[in-house]
Amino acid sequence: MNDEIDISQLETAEILELIQDDLYDGLADEVVVSVKELLNRDMTPYDVLTQGLVAGMAVVGNDFRDGILFVPEVLMAAKAMKAGMEILRPLLVETGAPQVGSMVIGTVKGDIHDIGKNLVAMMMEGAGFNVINLGINTDADAFIDAIREHNVDILGMSALLTTTMPYMQVVIDALKDQGLREQIIVLVGGAPLNEAFAEEIGADAYCRDAAVAVETAKKLIAIKRGQLT
């Protein structure tokens, strides 16, 4: 942690900016100190989340999308964000703060690649979503059980192989059979995918990268909740 800065002397707005910088630089300890200071100043956990962590991760996401930051920087930022979230999570539950949204995510059956999928999970958490990460090699039953159990807004599916991406269709068909398709937003991603594929299998959107996934998730949730048309 940077001993040069005595954050108790800073304005609240300055601390919020500091959180953004520290997230960008992946400094977990510094983020934790700032989060605690803001809570001491009676800022609500929800405001600390949205104005501090989520705002900071949005900058990280934009620069990742634009090719200014790459996976290593995003992973470090996500770790710093998680450290801040660990303090906020119980308080958010306690205070009944509004939920940004929730997601079940997994790499589809037959596919064992999880770096990109985990990156999406982290960026979604960074945007304030509650994420249930089912890992790799996930079959339709596992997706459906998790969707039922956690009653989530979004299903995210990932595949790196051209041979496994068709399984996404199997999952979407299973959602329809179970009468769940209408209530859930389906996002798909992975190196070999594209928009035409997402459309062909009846997903709601293809997300090129983790930053696009977050943007798309927010937009589609807002539409679903009637906040956008």
């Binding site: 634009d66 090719g67 996976v71 290593p72 770096i115």
Partner: peptide, 10 residues
């Protein structure tokens, strides 16, 4: 080198 002219790790 498949990510903005860089590797995934930049």
């Amino acid at each position: 080198f498949d990510t903005h002219g860089h590797t995934m790790m930049g």
